[in-house]
């Protein structure tokens, strides 16, 4: 019951954040000086053309009513039409988001798979060379701009060693439509196309690594410090006194409570991860939301831009909700204290 009420409060709160987010985005798009219709049509359009587009977009209605239209569209999952592609923004985003989602998923996986063991090693051999290595790695991963990491990886793996593909999601000559989940890795497995799966993974590796570096460093650092905190607890001393073998002590008693801080860090870092995904996608010609977002921004396509920002925000809020629930599940104290 207690978990349910925690869940309820947390979901309610996420909804509130989303409403706030929609107001902020709406404000940016409408209250800011400039006429969206005029901007979309450019300086050569006639006054009649501008008025017609204003009418079509509902820009001549009172601002509150416009927000009402925006939010009712949002609640139906309707983001309006893109002025650039002349298709519903939903369709555009749905197609591009799957690629972004796959990249982000692979990134998080890499960040945890490498970050946590590195943190454990640093804590186990505190002040020895593994610790120093992790510290240096954490600092450099935090200060390397993602686009630079992406370029360096591209040069190294693509041009110098020729081991991995550097652009796109699949080779040009490979035909495969991912129409179940939109994730190439998953859909190719469902379809039993192992060749596609292999290629999809190969294409994912470089962009995901470039994007994962920053988060991985943070996770390693925070895992290290929370492992060290936990290791000074009485129950760890007790288990040592009872002669519990070291692997069990480290992996069972110390690592499990140490999982919470990396999760929370991931939640906070997630916004910058999405931001960096935009840049990394561009470097690797990844057909995700970034390319679409940047194209529409240069065309002053407001509906599409609002859609992209809104979807990024919703993605962040949902991931944080998921993380909070996970943390509440792993660590009962969080539930009692309430969310945040």
């Amino acid at each position: 019951m207690e978990f349910l009420s925690f869940l309820f409060r947390r979901v309610l709160w996420s909804l509130l954040v989303l409403v706030g987010l929609s107001i902020v985005i709406f404000a940016i798009a409408r209250v800011v000086p400039g006429d969206p219709a005029r901007m979309a049509l450019g300086p050569t359009a006639t006054a009649e053309q501008v008025a017609a587009l204003q009418e079509k977009l509902g820009l001549n209605k009172p601002i509150v009513e416009q927000y009402g239209m925006f939010i009712s569209g949002l609640s139906r999952g309707d983001l309006g039409r893109s002025l650039l592609t002349e298709r519903p923004v939903n369709d555009d985003i749905r197609e591009t988001f799957a690629a972004t989602f796959e990249l982000v998923l692979a990134t998080i996986t890499l960040a945890f798979v490498f970050g946590v063991p590195l943190g454990v090693a640093a804590a186990r051999w505190k002040d020895k060379w593994p610790d120093t290595l992790v510290r240096v790695l954490a600092i450099f991963s935090a200060v390397t701009p993602s686009f630079f990491a992406a370029l360096l990886l591209q040069i190294l793996a693509g041009y110098v060693l020729h081991i991995l593909p550097t652009t796109g999601r699949l080779p040009h000559n490979m035909e495969f439509v991912a129409n179940i989940t939109g994730l190439l890795t998953v859909d190719s497995l469902i379809a039993g196309r192992l060749d596609v799966f292999g290629q999809a993974v190969r294409h994912l590796l470089l962009p995901a690594t470039a994007l994962a570096l920053a988060t991985m460093g943070q996770i390693a650092r925070i895992t290290r410090s929370s492992m060290i905190d936990v290791s000074s607890q009485d129950y760890i001393e007790a288990s040592r006194a009872f002669g519990v073998p070291e692997p069990i002590r480290v992996f069972k008693y110390m690592l499990r409570p140490s999982f919470v801080p990396p999760l929370t860090i991931l939640g906070l870092e997630f916004a910058s991860l999405i931001g960096n995904a935009f840049v990394v996608e561009l470097v690797f010609s990844w057909p995700g939301m970034a390319a679409y977002g940047i194209r529409t921004i240069l065309q002053k396509d407001l509906n599409a831009v609002m859609g992209v920002v809104m979807v990024s925000g919703v993605f962040f809020v949902l991931v944080n909700l998921l993380i909070d629930v996970l943390v509440g599940f792993v660590d009962p104290r969080v539930r009692i204290r309430g969310s945040r």
Binding site: I28, D301, V309
Partner: peptide
């Protein structure tokens, strides 16, 4: 709310407007 918007994406949106 402000935390839910990636700064980079926000800057992109403002650049669009």
């Amino acid at each position: 709310i402000a935390l839910a918007i990636p700064p980079l994406v926000m800057a992109l949106a403002v650049a669009a407007v």
